[in-house]
Simulated assay, not measured.
Amino acid sequence: MTYTLDWQAYTKLARQTVAEGAVLLQNDGVLPLQPATTVAVFGRNQFNYYKSGTGSGGMVNVTNVVSPLDMLREDVTLNTDVLKAYENWLEDHPFDQGEGWAAEPWSQEEMPLDATLVQQAALDSDVALIMIGRTAGEDRDNTADPGSYFLTETEQEMLRLVTTHFKQTVVVL
């Protein structure tokens, strides 16, 4: 018997699964984002997000991975100053792959935010989107530590700064 993967059916099912698996804790009318919205995206996971866990699941090779930024670009306007700040910072702070099987860190170093950047972004944007990422995996679960189950000090400061200056903030974990 020959099995052929129907990518259209697979993609439809994957989108349905993600939509049904998402948990919205609170929505004060910010979501869904409207096409005319300007969004300032904070958090390195806008670039380096975890699409799977570690171990065998992390070794799955797929031909079609769409980043959060790619999806956002389809529907809203991104704050280019914030985007550029992250792009510049990431040049000297690349994604840490870890060493060996299932050795990828549970989180990545987060960019410390400059208050002036956040203040200006709040003036130039309608909504802030904060992306925080974690992974876990085969043979090793998250631990009750910052950067694993808990937020790091830099992530906490990012949340504090952004929510102080923005009237509307969406947080994606």
Rank of each mutant, 00 (worst) to 15 (best):
S148Q: 08
G98N: 09
P68H: 11
S148D: 04
T37L: 03
T116S: 14
V76Q: 09
V23T: 15
D70G: 06
L5K: 02
M1V: 09
Q156P: 00
W7R: 12
K12E: 10
T163L: 02
H165G: 01
R160S: 04
D96P: 06
E104F: 06
A144Q: 01
N64E: 15
L25V: 10
T38G: 05
P146N: 01
Y50S: 09
E155W: 00
A121Y: 07
T143D: 01
P146Y: 03
G57M: 13
A128L: 04
D114N: 09
V41M: 05
A85N: 06
S125M: 02
Y3I: 11
Q108R: 06
R15H: 10
A14Q: 12
T135K: 04
R15I: 02
P35D: 08
L33M: 06
L123E: 10
T11P: 02
E20R: 12
M131W: 01
E155Q: 11
N61K: 15
R44E: 06
Q8I: 04
D141L: 05
K84G: 07
T2L: 02
E104H: 09
D124S: 11
L123P: 04
D6Q: 10
N79W: 09
L25A: 06
V172L: 11
E91P: 07
S56C: 12
A103R: 14
H93W: 13
V60F: 12
N88A: 10
M131V: 14
V18E: 11
G53C: 03
N88D: 15
Y50P: 04
P68I: 14
L78T: 09
Q46S: 03
E109T: 14
T143I: 00
D6K: 07
G100F: 13
L24E: 13
T169W: 02
F150G: 03
E138A: 01
G29H: 10
N64T: 13
V82Y: 08
Q46H: 10
Q34P: 07
E110F: 08
M1C: 05
L13N: 12
W89K: 07
A40N: 04
T154F: 00
Q120N: 14
Q46R: 12
Q156D: 01
W7K: 08
Q168A: 06
T2F: 00
D75P: 07
V162E: 05
D92E: 15
V162T: 03
Y49N: 11
N45T: 09
V172R: 03
V171R: 00
V170C: 07
D28P: 03
V65A: 11
K12C: 06
F42S: 05
A22V: 14
F150C: 01
D70F: 06
V18C: 09
D145T: 07
L113W: 03
D96E: 15
V30S: 05
Q34A: 13
N64S: 14
T37C: 11
G29M: 02
A19N: 10
V62C: 11
N27F: 07
N142W: 00
A19T: 10
P105R: 05
D145Y: 02
P146K: 02
A121C: 05
T154D: 01
A122V: 09
H165N: 06
R15C: 08
